[in-house]
Measured scan of single mutants.
Amino acid sequence: PREAYIVTIEKGKPGQTVTWYQLRADHPKPDSLISEHPTAQEAMDAKKRYED
């Protein structure tokens, strides 16, 4: 089974940042970016789909 994890990042100019959620996995390479999402819920949904 595949495993993934969610990383929170800040995008934008200082003082005007927006939080994004990255879905990452250690396949095919360590810390590979799988997808980016504007909400934590979307990231969790993507994580479930990826791991299923």
Rank of each mutant, 00 (worst) to 15 (best):
R2F: 11
E3M: 14
E3P: 09
A4C: 11
A4I: 11
A4S: 09
Y5C: 03
Y5I: 06
Y5P: 00
Y5D: 01
I6W: 02
I6F: 02
I6A: 00
I6H: 00
I6E: 00
I6C: 02
I6P: 00
V7M: 07
V7H: 05
V7L: 07
V7E: 04
V7D: 02
T8L: 11
T8V: 12
T8D: 04
T8I: 13
T8W: 06
I9D: 02
I9Q: 04
I9R: 04
E10V: 13
E10N: 10
E10P: 05
K11L: 08
K11T: 07
K13Q: 13
K13V: 14
K13L: 15
K13A: 14
P14D: 13
P14E: 13
P14V: 10
G15S: 06
G15P: 15
G15Y: 06
G15M: 05
G15D: 08
Q16L: 10
Q16I: 07
Q16T: 11
Q16V: 11
Q16E: 14
Q16S: 13
Q16D: 13
T17V: 10
T17P: 07
T17R: 11
T17F: 10
T17W: 11
V18M: 11
V18W: 07
V18I: 12
T19K: 10
W20V: 10
W20K: 05
W20Y: 08
Y21T: 00
Y21N: 00
Y21I: 01
Y21F: 11
Y21W: 13
Y21C: 01
Y21M: 01
Q22V: 04
Q22S: 04
Q22C: 03
Q22L: 04
Q22W: 02
L23D: 01
L23C: 02
R24W: 14
R24M: 12
R24P: 01
R24N: 02
R24C: 06
A25I: 14
A25W: 04
A25S: 15
A25K: 08
A25Q: 05
A25D: 04
A25F: 04
D26K: 13
D26C: 09
D26E: 07
D26N: 15
H27G: 07
H27C: 07
H27N: 11
P28R: 07
P28N: 07
P28M: 08
P28G: 08
P28K: 08
P28W: 06
P28T: 06
K29C: 09
K29D: 10
K29T: 13
K29W: 15
K29Q: 12
P30R: 11
P30S: 07
P30T: 09
P30Q: 09
P30C: 06
D31M: 11
D31F: 15
D31P: 10
D31V: 05
D31H: 13
S32W: 11
S32D: 04
L33H: 03
L33I: 13
L33W: 04
I34G: 00
I34C: 03
I34W: 03
I34L: 09
S35K: 01
S35A: 02
S35F: 01
S35G: 03
S35I: 01
S35C: 01
E36R: 01
E36V: 07
E36D: 04
H37D: 01
H37Y: 08
H37V: 02
H37Q: 01
H37W: 15
P38L: 13
P38A: 15
P38F: 07
P38K: 13
P38E: 12
P38W: 07
T39V: 03
T39E: 03
T39G: 03
T39H: 04
A40G: 06
A40E: 15
Q41I: 12
Q41W: 12
E42I: 05
E42R: 05
A43W: 00
A43S: 03
A43N: 00
M44W: 15
M44A: 13
D45A: 11
A46H: 05
A46R: 03
A46I: 01
A46Q: 04
K47A: 04
K47H: 05
K47D: 00
K48L: 12
K48N: 09
K48A: 12
K48F: 09
K48V: 11
R49D: 08
R49L: 13
R49K: 15
R49A: 15
R49C: 06
R49M: 12
R49I: 13
Y50G: 02
Y50D: 02
Y50N: 02
E51F: 06
E51R: 05
E51S: 08
D52S: 15
D52I: 12
D52V: 12
D52E: 13
D52C: 08
D52P: 05
